[in-house]
Amino acid sequence: MKFRIEPFVWLAFSGGGVLAALFMPVLAFLFALAFPLGWIDPPSHDHLDAIVSNPLTFLVLFGLFVVMLVHAAHRFRYTLYDGLQIKHRVLVGTLCYGAVLVGAFACLQFLGGATQ
C-alpha cells in the first residue's frame, strides 16, 4: 500500500484545532490582554520563570505550539486555494508547511532557551 502523508496532516489539523480551541482563549486573554493592560496583576518574574524553566512546561508548550502551527498552516493552505483562488498547489503547500518547520525550530530555540 502506498504511504500517504495527507491523513496524518489532517489528524494534526484536527488535533491542533481542538488544542487551540481549548488552550488559546485563556492563554491569549491572560498573556496578550489582561497582563499587559493591567486588568489582572501580572505574575512575578520569579513565578513565571519557575514555570517556563520546568522541562514539563517545555514539552507541553512545544507539543501544543507545533500542533497548533500545523493546524494553522493546513487551514491557511485551503484559505489560499478556495478563498483567494490561488491554485499554485506545490508553491502554497511548500510555503505553508515550510513555515511550520521554521516555527518548530523557533519553538525549540525559544522554549529551550527559557528552560535552561
Binding site: 491569549a28 517556563v52 497548533m68
Partner: peptide, 26 residues
C-alpha cells in the same frame, strides 16, 4: 466561513507572540 478559515493566521500569530513572551521571561 471565510472568517473562520482566517482564524488560522491569528492562531499562528498568537503562537509566535507566546513564544516571544516565554523568551522574554527566560
Amino acid at each position: 466561513f471565510v472568517m473562520r478559515e482566517l482564524s488560522s493566521i491569528f492562531i499562528a500569530w498568537l503562537v509566535l507572540y507566546l513564544l516571544l513572551f516565554v523568551r522574554a521571561v527566560g
